[in-house]
């Protein structure tokens, strides 16, 4: 039995029944609260609709994320950065360098190579489209970043096209780009309009697009780097080293 299993022993039957009843009660209370509450819902939706013309974008979700609640989104990018740093500190970036055994084919298949070769450019294109369309329709930095990270994950399984992640400053710069660009935009907006994260309404669309572009790169990089860290932490492989 290893450390990962070493917590308390599996609870006995009676304890599990008590636990199940307790969890059921919690769920019932939550359900009851949701069913009986609900007053005041929609007030924020009306506020968003009223302020949408001044936000710089036409899609309300993007307006909320990048303008009305921009501070939340900035902190979210900071959370992503912290995750990237933490996985790196636990051995992510350092261990995910180009070790010889990393470069052996994960699945030596010409099919995989051609799939990656044909599909990844379209995935990158789709990511860029999602970033752009976020101003008018569902889309935006996080969706685009997720699609681009998925392209990276796909390419990871093809030895010919596996992305290289050198543990040097460009990698770290891309990881920090989203949070950094957001913080810089917040300070510039503070100097310009006197309001923290208060973009000038006339150019708000361009501010949002610039921040979203930086955030897209960061989200994609963080997701791919953490995926890579988890993949390279495969215990069976590490044990032979």
């Amino acid at each position: 039995m290893d450390l990962a299993e070493a917590g308390a022993a599996r609870p006995g039957r009676a304890a599990r029944i008590v636990l199940a009843v307790a969890c059921g009660t919690v769920a019932a209370v939550v359900g009851w609260a949701l069913a009986s509450g609900g007053a005041g819902r929609g007030r924020l939706a009306a506020d968003v609709r009223a302020a949408l013309p001044r936000s710089g974008v036409e899609h309300p979700v993007t307006a909320v994320l990048l303008n009305f609640r921009a501070f939340d989104t900035m902190l979210e990018l900071a959370v992503l950065l912290v995750v990237a740093i933490a996985t790196g500190a636990v051995g992510g970036i350092a261990h995910s360098g180009a070790r010889p055994e990393d470069l052996r084919p994960a699945s030596p298949s010409p099919l995989m190579d051609s799939l990656v070769h044909d599909l990844v450019p379209f995935a990158l294109l789709a990511g860029a489209y999602l970033l752009w369309v976020g101003a008018y329709a569902p889309g935006g930095a996080f969706q685009a970043g997720a699609v681009i990270a998925a392209a990276g994950v796909l390419a990871h399984f093809s030895p010919r096209f596996r992305p290289q992640v050198p543990d040097r400053w460009p990698t770290r710069a891309v990881l920090a780009l989203g949070a950094g660009a957001f913080a810089c935009a917040a300070l510039v907006a503070l100097a310009w309009t006197g309001v923290y994260l208060g973009y000038p309404p006339a150019q708000a669309g361009w501010w949002i697009l610039a921040i979203e572009a930086a955030a897209t790169l960061s989200v994609a990089a963080v997701l791919y780097v953490t995926f890579r860290a988890v993949m390279s932490a495969d215990p069976s492989r590490r044990g032979t080293q």
Partner: peptide
């Protein structure tokens, strides 16, 4: 309500990265 959608979108990304960190810690512990 777009605010709820934005919250969920934020939450999904944070949940994914927190899961990745958790997985990484589990692997390391193992």
């Amino acid at each position: 309500d777009p605010v709820a959608h934005a919250l969920v979108l934020t939450g999904i990304v944070v949940a994914v990265s927190a899961t990745a960190l958790g997985l990484h810690l589990v692997c390391r512990l193992h």
